[in-house]
Structure formats: C-alpha cells, structure tokens
Design a protein around this nucleic acid. Structure first.
Lengths: 210, 210
DNA sequence: TCAAACCTTAAACGCGCGTTCAATCCGCTG
DNA sequence: CAGCGGATTGAACGCGCGTTTAAGGTTTGA
C-alpha cells in the first residue's frame, strides 16, 4: 500500500526531474520520510530497480503497438493515456541514464518494430528489406533517439501535460519529412545502394570467407 | 597554459564519464588541486562554460561536413581525427545533459545538414523536399539522437579508442538500412503521403486561414 | 491482555561535493 | 635586494546526499 504509493511517486518524480533527485524529495512526494523508503526498498538503487521492474511489466502488458510514424509514436500513444503518461516519461529518463530497463526497453521496441514492419510487408504496404531485423533496429533507434534528444533540448516541462504537448509538437514537425522519406526516399537514383551491395558481396581486399 | 591544461583535462574526463564527475577528479587529471580550478574558472559551472565555448569554437572552425550517412557520420568523421575525438565525445555528453552548447550544437548540425542536402538537390543526387529546413532538421535530430541513444545503451567505453570502435560498429550496422531507406523508401506506394498532403491543404475542420 | 511483528519517524553519521580562505611559492619589476 | 602580484596549495566549511539506528506507534494473534 504505502510501498506502492512511494513507487508511484518515484516514477512520477524521476520522470519529471531525472534520477539525480534525492530520496527525500521522493519521500516528501509520497508523504513519508526518507528512512521509510529505504526500509521498504533497501536502498535508492532498490527503489530504482523496483520502478524499472514495475514500468517494464506495465509496458509489456500494455503491448504498445508501433503504429505508422515510427516507434516515437508508440511513446506518444502511451503518453496520451493519462494513467500511463508518467511511465512513458520514466522510460525516456531511463533510456537517458542507461541501465537495466533501458536495454530491455529498446529490445522490446525493436521487436515490436520488426513485428509491425513484417506485417506491413506481408500486406504489401511496406517494401521488404535485405535485413529486416537490422532495418527494424535502425528505425527504432532513430525514432527513440530523436525523442531522447528532443527532451534533452527542451528540459522545461514540469507537468505531464507539457510532455504531451511536446510530443504533439514533435509529431507535427516530423510528419511531413518522415512521410516524404518513407514514401519517396532521399536519393534520386539507386547508385549508392547498388555500389554498397556490390562492395559487400565482393569486397576489394581481405577477409572473404571460403 | 595551466588553465588550458585544466580545460583539456576537463573535456576529456567529462566526455568519458559525464558531467557528474567531481572537480577534484578533473583537477587530479590536470595535475593540480580543486582550488586552482576554481581560481581559474570561478566555479564548476564556469569550467563547464569554458569547455562549451572552446569546443563550440573548434567545431565551428573545423566546419564538419555532413557526408552521406547523415549527421552521425559527421561525429564519426570528427572522432577519427585523434585530436578532435575527445571533443566529439564531449559534444555528445553535452547533448545528453542539455544546456547551452547542446542547443547551438544542434542548430549547427541542422544548418550543415540543410546546406549539404541543398547541394545534393542542386547536383541532382537528392530529391527536393516540400520543407527543406524541416527535412534537414528531421534527419539531423534522428541521426544525432540515435547516436545519443547508442552511447546511453553502451556506456562501457573507458578510452577514446573504444569510442571510435563503437562509432565504426554503428556505421557498419546502419549503413544497409539507411541506404535502403534513402534509396527506396519504406512504403510501397505514396498513398499515406498524398493523404497527408490532401489533409493539410484541406483540413476537415477548424482553423483554415482566410 | 500481553507481547511479538510490523510500520513509521526523527535524529544522527559519514561521505563527497562545490566553494572559501589564509598561507606559500615564484617570477617579475623598480 | 625588496616588494608586489599572480599561481598554487592544503585545510576547512557548509551542504545535501544515502544510509543507519534507536525509539515510538500500531496492528495482530495467541
């Protein structure tokens, strides 16, 4: 009961201010003292791990689907749901700081992206790739990365509502360039791609396998 | 003389360990005491600002060109030069932490990307965009963002050499997906783009300008 | 009813941080 | 040589951190 209140307060506060906030601030948000937090979670790191585990579980069970617009849209979608918004923010902070959750979270993102892309390929909407997993990973990393960079450059939101506003602004700004790139590509011809494919099949020197 | 040695040591250490390292660690790297650092730079924040200004100046004068592969390649290119590698790392840490340099750095990146893209358009290699600045910004944010995310997920490099290895690995992994996307796009048809263009020209409700 | 098991608090501890300060060293100039 | 000013040191200060500890409440079950 109280432990869950502390955990929720920690998720909210860590999401807003990052993991460098003190235990006492989290404790005050939950209406308790710092000692009690340690009593329930062992240490600050224990609290962090508990938050990680809880958020990961919720996100896993929420089965966030990567819709069109890339993986960034998945976070946006999650943030639209009032209840989940703090966890979306927390996840971003977690990616920013690295650590246990970050890796699993990105793995999940890549897997979801792959799944969605393959569904698109199967239905004839999306072009097949020579390296589907690599492409999914590439798109997931780029999408989440740009989101991460954005919140680094705009650290000014103090409420979860501001976070939603930021996400909508991002969406507005990137939709046209993304649709252009996804629909028409960037290069006029295929020369660079063909040159590269030729290169990797028949490298000019060295380690060709027998 | 000594001040420059402190500044260089700070750039190196901040780049490796992030901005949370103590003044005493930086001072020890430079072979001086913490008091002297404050004497020369006023405060820890003064040291940070001095590093920011110096790195920004160097990067500005180095006129890093965004070659094919996107803005991430610019960092990689910078890191290949032994002398500049610590500053490339420092810039990434700066983006991670936000702040003064981060904003100007990304502005520079976007401007360079725009310049390079327009040159490509002029020479007939790159497709024109309906929103050239938006596209440049989009590509710069995605490229730098994914780099940022990568170093968050792989915080294990302790030497500048490791950083170069990481960059080469990134390059190897993303080259094929990036070339595919840039050459062939992602969608099979243009329906989504056309729908969106139709939508923004003739929105179904509300704020149409006279 | 009594005591064991808990939840919870307030105070204290030790540590490392950024910063301050007096003292010392060193090189220059008159 | 005397003296001055910047460079440099080492010790100290105050602060906030995570953590520990002893004590006080509150529930609970035999």
């Amino acid at each position: 009961m109280t432990a869950e209140r502390i955990r929720d307060a920690a998720i909210l506060r860590y999401g807003r201010d990052g993991f460098s906030v003190g235990l006492r601030a989290v404790a005050a948000d939950a209406g308790v003292t710092a000692g009690l937090v340690v009593h329930h979670f062992g240490s600050k790191d224990g609290l962090r791990k508990a938050c990680d585990a809880y958020v990961l579980g919720v996100i896993r069970s929420a089965k966030l689907k990567a819709t069109r617009g890339g993986p960034a849209a998945a976070i946006a979608q999650l943030a639209e749901i009032e209840e989940y918004a703090p966890m979306a923010l927390y996840s971003l902070r977690s990616l920013q700081a690295g650590g246990e959750l970050a890796g699993e979270f990105m793995e999940q993102m890549c897997a979801d992206a792959l799944e969605y892309l393959e569904a698109g390929v199967a239905s004839g909407l999306i072009r097949p790739s020579r390296d589907p997993a690599g492409r999914a990973r590439y798109l997931a990393m780029q999408g989440m990365g740009s989101l991460l960079l954005w919140i680094s450059l705009h650290p000014g939101f103090r409420e979860v509502d501001d976070f939603r506003k930021e996400l909508r602004q991002i969406s507005d700004e990137i939709t046209l360039p993304a649709l252009e790139l996804f629909s028409e590509g960037l290069f006029v011809d295929r020369k660079m791609l063909d040159d590269y494919l030729m290169y990797v099949c028949d490298p000019p020197a060295g380690d060709a396998k027998p």
